[in-house]
Design a protein around this nucleic acid. Structure first.
Lengths: 196, 196
DNA sequence: CCTACCGATCGGTAGG
DNA sequence: CCTACCGATCGGTAGG
């Protein structure tokens, strides 16, 4: 039975911030507890283990990315590959900027999960990347994108997108909308034919 | 006096692998020692602290990136911004693929350095990124690149480039040359005018 | 959610 | 490079 109360969500929130700032391994259970003004041992009234906190953050973030991508694909079911890739990129930027701490923990700290969770997350990440890759493959097949290696192109775009989680801060110079616009443009053009 | 003997280099090598695989915080001094078949305390005959090992790896990697970029810029001193950016991207891919473990430690673990080292590395990373940004600015100014936000574009390209360190494995499907060719193409096209 | 406590492991030192 | 050892901190449990 997974606890979903307000305190439990608060734990994920402060843990996301700490894991993002210092990393999972360098964050102690007592660090998390201190941020909540409770004793270290009291945290175990809400969670079974430190790893369960990481798991909850990673699993939630993975689901957010998956749902956003599925929505983007559904919304562009009758559109071409260019529009679909644009929708995928935009959706990714939205998820990252909506919660950069959680996203960056998902992107960088999931390797600290023990098996079989770690492998499961790896599979989900592969499946997520496949959404981008097959969209690029479709676009190449119909001549909407130039002939290129779709796997390399998907990785290029996705690593750039994931990078946002490491540098984005709410209230900075760049708004999520502006980032999304620019990243869509950069990603689409990177795959466009050259007519110079 | 910095020790530079063979054993010292061996320490950086195995530590790079361990820090890359498990992260700096999750790697103990005894883990490093075990990989060298010596006792944990014996490591201190060669290094003053665990952080000094990280520092040596990060400082070396930073210097490699800086030197490669400076060479790329010097080699294209009479060329246009397009060629210069191509040379910067190619140089970055070469450094990353020549030692992906060290590079990924540089990219992801430098935040575990204590001050003032951490801030110094941050400054060097900013200066490195500025080489890409100003090259893009130059290209935009002369119309070689489309009008875009050079800071966003530089971050887009550099995060994609740094991502290589996290997935590249020597002996895999993709050779360093092939990756460099594709990444140069993707980066340049992402900044090209659209003539469709 | 607290106090009190556990064994294990951490980075590092002393002295050879 | 070794043995022997240090205090501090780790994730986690017992019992309220």
């Amino acid at each position: 039975m997974i606890e979903t109360g307000a305190r439990r969500r608060e734990i994920d929130e402060v843990a996301s911030e700490l894991f993002h700032a210092n990393g999972y391994a360098a964050t102690s259970v007592r660090d998390i507890a201190r941020a909540l003004d409770i004793q270290g041992a009291s945290l175990y009234a809400h969670v079974a283990s430190k790893e369960d906190v990481l798991w909850s953050i990673v699993d939630w973030a993975a689901a957010e990315f998956e749902q956003a991508a599925d929505r983007a694909i559904a919304d562009t079911s009758t559109a071409d590959a260019v529009e679909r890739l644009a929708a995928l990129v935009e959706a990714h930027v939205e998820v990252v900027t909506a919660d950069p701490e959680r996203s960056s923990v998902f992107v960088t700290e999931w390797r600290h999960l023990s098996e079989p969770r770690r492998a499961a997350v790896g599979d989900r990440r592969d499946a997520y990347e496949a959404r981008f890759r097959t969209t690029i493959e479709d676009g190449v097949a119909v001549g909407a994108f130039r002939a290129t290696d779709p796997a390399i192109a998907a990785t290029f775009i996705l690593t750039a997108l994931n990078g946002i989680a490491t540098w984005f801060r709410a209230g900075g110079r760049l708004t999520p909308d502006r980032i999304a616009d620019h990243y869509v443009e950069l990603a689409l053009r990177s795959l466009s034919e050259d007519h110079r």
